[in-house]
Simulated assay, not measured.
Amino acid sequence: MTKVWVLGAGQLGAMLQQAAYPLALDVHPLAPEDETLPEISAADIVTVEREQWPDTALTRHLSSQPGFINAAIFGRIADRLYQKTMLDELEINTAPWLPVTASSHAEALHAEIGEDILLKRRTGGYDGKGQFWLYQDQGDEIPSDWLDAAIAEQKIPFEEELSLVGARDADGNKVFYPLTLNLHSNGILMASVAPLERVKHLQSQAEAMLGKIMDSANYIGVMAMECFRVKDKLIVNELAPRVHNSGHWTQAGACVSQFEMHLRAVSGLPIKAPEVRGQSVMINLIGVARNIDWLNIPSSQCYWYGKDVRPGRKVGHININHPNKKAVQTALVKLRPLLPENYGAVFDWVQDELAKI
């Protein structure tokens, strides 16, 4: 069996490991802090579940392997300065932006890119972390610890957030999943819905954008592109060179999940267009205690990550899928009382979106 070492041992690594068995791949997720260095042969493959990692003996060991896929791109694409520069060079729509340098001042940034500006740390920051708003009417100034460490983006008055998950193999073949509609709260993904007939006309635009990005980087594996939709224009917000939370619905809703697709691509197995199976909804479980009654919900799969429960922490997700949309709506009604009251707005949003389809 071909061995695949995964840098990172969180839930994404665990789900890659789960997806490996039908492919006869031997997947080993490794935490960066592990002190034991594995013996890796020249024929082994190294991939990641995260686009950045601490400098440890293990991460240096994995990064130095000849089978480390996409070694040249991870460090760069994890830097938002590089990511934004790359998008501009490829002439792909993204929010107007500027680097935050040691001499940057809020007044100049507002004059250049707008009244409301979002500062983003160049590296790190996810689920709403690593961000700071500058509002011109409040007279905010750039905090000193953000100088030379961030980019500044114009606030985009978007209508909704969409993401596209695609995969590319070593020969340049590409496949894509349908666009996914996402709901965020305080920067954390709460729910995803796919597919959506009303955004189908944007699929070719999204595929052209992500395909161009993957080709330019000679990327192999799954990549996710998060976008803002402004009328019929997609604007790239973030790129994730790995399997992605907004693609979790594919575990139930496609003939090949994003996890299997990534392993196929990096190991040289055929990738194929993912046939979609009915209507899917993914509900993220954020900072909630496990409830075994979730397992009774029809048309659903529950994934529990085995983490300690803390406020704001992703501890699991529930996929709901069925060929009949009404069955998905019924499952959501049954699930709603099994989650905290703050999920009411999430269920309302999902049901409203399903009613539009």
Rank of each mutant, 00 (worst) to 15 (best):
D215V: 09
N218D: 15
S257P: 02
V175E: 14
M223D: 09
S280A: 15
A191Y: 02
E238Q: 11
A289Y: 06
V165D: 04
P270I: 03
R242W: 04
E207M: 09
I188N: 07
A289S: 14
H201N: 15
Y219P: 05
E238D: 14
E160N: 13
H244V: 08
G166L: 03
A217S: 10
C255L: 12
L263H: 06
M190V: 01
F176M: 09
N237F: 03
G278F: 00
G166Q: 04
M190N: 10
A217Q: 15
M282H: 09
K212R: 15
E275C: 00
V199G: 06
G211N: 11
V193P: 02
A217N: 12
K272V: 11
L285N: 04
G247D: 10
G166T: 06
T180I: 14
H248L: 07
S267D: 04
H248I: 06
P241D: 08
H262C: 08
V256C: 06
G278Y: 01
D232A: 02
E207L: 00
E226R: 06
I271D: 07
V266E: 04
P178S: 12
N186V: 00
L164C: 05
E238P: 05
V165M: 11
P178G: 12
A289C: 03
P195G: 11
S185A: 13
S257L: 09
E226D: 13
P270E: 12
E260R: 03
H201L: 09
S185R: 14
H262L: 08
M214V: 11
V266A: 09
A224R: 00
T250L: 06
I286C: 06
I286A: 05
V288T: 13
M214R: 07
L210M: 09
W249C: 11
L285A: 12
I271T: 09
I188G: 11
A252Y: 01
D171F: 02
R168S: 14
A206G: 13
V281R: 08
A240H: 02
V165P: 02
L285P: 00
M214Q: 13
G253N: 13
G221F: 01
G187F: 04
K272G: 10
M223V: 05
P195T: 10
A265D: 03
A240P: 00
M214E: 10
F176E: 07
N182C: 08
I283H: 07
A208C: 06
L189F: 02
V266N: 07
D171S: 15
S204Y: 00
Q279N: 12
S204E: 15
R198E: 13
F228Q: 10
E260S: 15
S246N: 06
L234S: 07
L269Y: 05
V199S: 06
A206W: 02
C255M: 12
K200N: 14
R264C: 13
S192L: 03
A265R: 01
Q258Y: 05
T250E: 10
C227W: 01
E197M: 03
A240W: 01
N245D: 15
L234P: 02
E275V: 14
S185Y: 01
S204W: 00
E238W: 01
G172T: 09
L210P: 08
P241A: 15
G247Q: 07
V256S: 11
V288H: 03
V230I: 11
M225K: 04
L239F: 08
